[in-house]
Design a protein around this nucleic acid. Structure first.
Ligand SMILES: [Zn+2]
Ligand SMILES: [Zn+2]
Ligand SMILES: [Zn+2]
Ligand SMILES: [Zn+2]
Lengths: 168, 168
DNA sequence: AGGCGATTGATATAGTATAACATGTCGGCC
DNA sequence: GGCCGACATGTTATACTATATCAATCGCCT
């Protein structure tokens, strides 16, 4: 039942130590501004979903998010979580991490970025890095095949600095 | 239903037109050599699974592979397909395409490569491109975060040359 | 023959995701 | 005010993807 081998530190920080409450609040504010700019309605479920992702500062599965939402009086069915998450992803307020079948809040809402995800295989922390250089190389390789890249999933699995220092 | 070399869609070839029977046979031979080199046993189910992937020359879901295997007298249960696929992936004879929850035969077995996948969103063809430049950029970006990349999933979605020419 | 690890198969279940329908809410518009 | 359509939320039901576990078998070595 709860013999979870991985113990993702509750609200674990991304790679760099930081004041996470401020980091989450900050990002939420930017996300709200971005939603307003887009004319996207950040309703209660959606906002709460985003807050949950931001507070955790890690990738969360849809059902994990759903449990939290349900515990707070929202719907108990999968579509409740999936719809909110889909909304966030579509509007660039969150990202889907396919390697983990999970979702993570976007740390740079409104910046129109193509992220690369750095996923620690030990602590499950997920950091969003700038993909511009990677994307450039990708576009060039693809061009060599006559292929036009529209979207890319770039996800790296490895060791975060903290876990590497801890001797993995 | 399979003869016209000009039409990619069903079981379509990768991006470049080619003699697919030869392409598949060739790759299978190289895969067998690689398996032998590794001391990996390419048993009937495993070999047939690889052949199925090679013949299709596209990414296939585990259950799709399972249906084929079952129709040919192998087991009818999911683990049959998942185990064979896992074996192939572990030995570098196939790759997992997470974006599609699917698997594709490796076109360069034994070359110790880190592939990038180019996935056509129209015809579902999947090409395996050299990821070395992409991987280099990725490593550099990751290093900037103190992150050590061990494995990466690099998958691009877009338009293959044939579909682009056909006016998308 | 007997032991042993690897392989295959079946049963059962876990985990992830979406289709389809019902209800409610909030606008503009007559 | 009353109507209407767009959207949001919620529910039921189901589809799709993946793994844990036990049982039988096979190849190989002693
Ligand atoms: Zn982002
Ligand atoms: Zn870590
Ligand atoms: Zn390959
Ligand atoms: Zn195509």
């Amino acid at each position: 039942m709860s013999a979870d081998p991985k113990i993702p530190p509750e609200g674990g920080p991304a790679f760099a130590d930081h004041d996470h409450a401020q980091c989450a609040g900050n990002t939420l504010a930017r996300a709200e501004a971005e939603a307003a700019r887009l004319g996207a309605r950040l309703t209660p479920v959606r906002k709460r979903t985003l807050e949950i992702l931001l507070e955790a500062h890690r990738a969360m599965g849809a059902y994990e998010v759903l449990d939290r939402l349900a515990a707070e009086g929202f719907g108990h069915q999968p579509p409740v979580a999936y719809r909110a998450l889909e909304f966030l992803v579509e509007h660039g307020l969150a990202h889907r991490v396919r390697r983990l079948n999970a979702f993570a809040a976007c740390m740079h809402p409104g910046e129109d970025h193509a992220p690369v995800f750095l996923i620690c295989r030990v602590c499950d922390a997920v950091a969003e890095a700038d993909a511009a250089p990677v994307r450039g190389a990708l576009d060039q390789v693809a061009a060599g095949h006559g292929f036009a890249v529209e979207r890319a999933n770039l996800e790296a699995l490895g060791l975060c600095p903290a876990c590497a220092a801890r001797g993995e």
